[in-house]
């Protein structure tokens, strides 16, 4: 990345940034919020898969993902045009249509990025317009030695796959299956999955935006608390 500083216009506001930096972090630094799920600031090669960070750039025919749009001198960006708002809303509605919406009993409640984005977009966490998709998976997949995976919460952002790939002991997490059945699997794309073991670093549980991946230990503690609260609630009226 060159050290040249350029000036760009975002939603009418002039901001400066190093040339070639990705647009999304530049906007975030200047207090212009653009929602995203799949992006992490340490990524060199963001996957641009959640499609929430789409923005309009003058002169380009189609919206682009700001997480991997390099900043250039004189660029004019709009993050809040009608078209962008519409696309974001549809993308968000699609995402939550697969979600069970049981926030109260979710380990990520109140720290969930989906909740934050819902607030920002003024969208409900349960969509009425679209049919709810109940993905054909169990609530919990617990065959990993240290991880609990809740596929119905997973938004398939791929952050866990990314942080796992950064682990020097080789990675285990990867996408599996296709279409609506796509899921995170624990076997990675290494030639001999048995040869590599989970590094037990729990990095994936820390960056999961929706609490679909958590450490077994933490998850069990959380569930015990939830049960306890439920018990207390039941007892109160009587």
């Amino acid at each position: 990345m060159s050290e040249k500083i350029v000036t760009i216009t975002v939603d009418g506001k002039k901001i400066t940034a190093p040339e070639g930096a990705w647009l999304l972090p530049v906007c975030l630094e200047h207090d212009i919020y653009i929602p995203s799920l799949c992006w992490l600031k340490e990524m060199d090669d963001p996957p641009a898969s959640c499609r929430l960070c789409l923005v309009e750039i003058e002169g380009l025919p189609e919206p682009v993902a700001s997480c991997r749009c390099p900043v250039r001198e004189g660029m004019v960006v709009r993050t809040n045009s009608d078209e962008i708002l519409k696309l974001r809303q549809v993308a968000f509605r699609l995402l939550v249509s697969t979600n069970d919406g049981h926030c109260n009993t979710c380990i990520a409640n109140r720290s969930c990025e989906l909740q934050q984005i819902a607030k920002f977009l003024h969208q409900p966490l349960r969509t009425k317009r679209l049919r709810h998709i109940d993905r054909d998976y169990p609530e919990i997949i617990d065959d990993h030695p240290v991880l609990m995976y809740e596929p119905k919460k997973c938004v398939l952002c791929g952050r866990c796959v990314y942080v796992c790939s950064q682990n020097e002991r080789g990675y285990k997490l990867d996408f599996a299956k296709r279409g609506m059945d796509t899921i995170i699997s624990f076997y990675g794309s290494d030639i001999d999955p048995a040869a590599k073991e989970c590094a037990d670093c729990l990095a994936c549980t820390e960056i999961c935006p929706v609490g679909a991946l958590s450490s077994k230990e933490k998850w069990r503690r959380f569930i015990a608390e939830v049960r306890l609260k439920q018990e207390q609630k039941k007892q109160k009226p009587s």
Binding site: S49, L94, L156, R178
Partner: peptide, 22 residues
């Protein structure tokens, strides 16, 4: 196309599913 979607991006993975269901 839904069955062959790689599942990476939101629109294709979930959008085509809704299209199919409707």
């Amino acid at each position: 196309t839904q069955g062959e979607s790689c599942g990476k991006c939101t629109f294709c993975r979930i959008g085509t599913h809704h299209l199919r269901e409707i």
